[in-house]
Design a protein around this nucleic acid. Sequence first.
DNA 1: GTTCCGATAATGTCTATACATAATCGCGAA
DNA 2: TTCGCGATTATGTATAGACATTATCGGAAC
Lengths: 241, 241
Amino acid sequence: MKEDPAGMKHLHQRIRDDIEARIMSGEWAPGHRIPFEHELMAEYGCSRMTVNKVLSTLAANGLITRRRRAGTVVAEPSSQQAVLQIQDFALEAARAGVEYRFKILSRSVEPIDVAAAQRTGLPAGTQMLCLSTLHVMDNVPQAFEQRLINLATVPEAGTEPFKDDPPGTWLLRRVPWTDAEHIVRAVNADGTMAKRLQIQSGAACLVLERRTWQAGAFVTEARITYPGDRHQLVGRFSPVA
Amino acid sequence: MKEDPAGMKHLHQRIRDDIEARIMSGEWAPGHRIPFEHELMAEYGCSRMTVNKVLSTLAANGLITRRRRAGTVVAEPSSQQAVLQIQDFALEAARAGVEYRFKILSRSVEPIDVAAAQRTGLPAGTQMLCLSTLHVMDNVPQAFEQRLINLATVPEAGTEPFKDDPPGTWLLRRVPWTDAEHIVRAVNADGTMAKRLQIQSGAACLVLERRTWQAGAFVTEARITYPGDRHQLVGRFSPVA
DNA sequence: GTTCCGATAATGTCTATACATAATCGCGAA
DNA sequence: TTCGCGATTATGTATAGACATTATCGGAAC
């Protein structure tokens, strides 16, 4: 009954592929009711658990919607989203075989101002470590980073010299991630920023703001400014894992 | 043995929450070996299938890495990524209670040029529907969209008047999604673009490029230019669904 | 010491069954 | 006709057992 040897995938995968194919080809349009578990069970000659696990997975991935008693239907296409990779300079530089270094331009511990308190949801006056970092590859400035680190959540940051790794990389390795909020904007470089990044005043820059929380506790906010003529954010995405 | 009634979650969820909590609190750092299935089974007094399903789910979500015989370990934090919502103007406008309209500035059917052929992986000379659309809210231009639609994949687009819905919305409803590629950049508006978007020449603009495929077949490419002072891309993201 | 190979131990897949839960349908009463 | 309630049905969760697959470990042969 089972002949795995000859190019035969597992049943789970076969059922999953079949359903995905029918959805993505448009044969089963959004809203279309897909066969009941007992029907698929009969069609593939397997137990309900197998079918159920496939459908649960597809539901978790947002491809289908399941409701007790009512059955299973193809989900409406979700609102469009873009998944973009955020570059790790040290990693990219090593891969490309170029020299990377970073320079901490300023460092201080200050209570946050009202605007930052609003953004982060922290009480005004919370002590934050404030860092300004310049990222340089092959002697060309690649990005300017302004970062706030919540010393209440990450107290060891206060005494960390950030000698080997820039703050972002250090944090990523140290603090587990839970939630993040991102904002991407385009701005014209002002005089100060232009000087720092060695670009013309007024040149378009990509600004990435990233705020992260760990289990509800605010961790850090980073505002990274990239020269528009040297950087872009890129991402590939397919809804079905 | 089972007392669901009093605020008791399902075992599956409890195990999952426990493991997620330990990972996200840092108690189990990346690389840490997670208890074997038979250990968790004993700890929670349940069958292996239950534990297995939890761990499979977490593995699918990228939180842990599983290897036969070797066991299960906490995954290294993946390279950072940002998930950004792409605005649907009609929807946003309706929600905010403002007037939205779009205007198709140009429309033609042309064979693609060499550069576009390279980007899309199509043979040079493939016939594409080329559209330029301006999105307007409350009489203020919000975005300029240049779009190519592959007539081989979506032939019905050739005769579609795009009267009620702009091309992006029309396509989203019609063509099932499979893969997408995104690029976000910042550029200075040139004279033509500035005029179209009613901004100053040289003002920073956010450019979103989006290419989509359906089961390997190229569907469409859109390049949307937003005035930098009026728009930003926003996204929230948590790694554990 | 090195190489190869079989035993072992972990995950991967699947079955057959059971009971829980939730939403719908249809019937009977107001 | 309408309302409400019980029966029905599809999914949700869980179990115990079986066999497949695949690294790894450790010992035997070289």
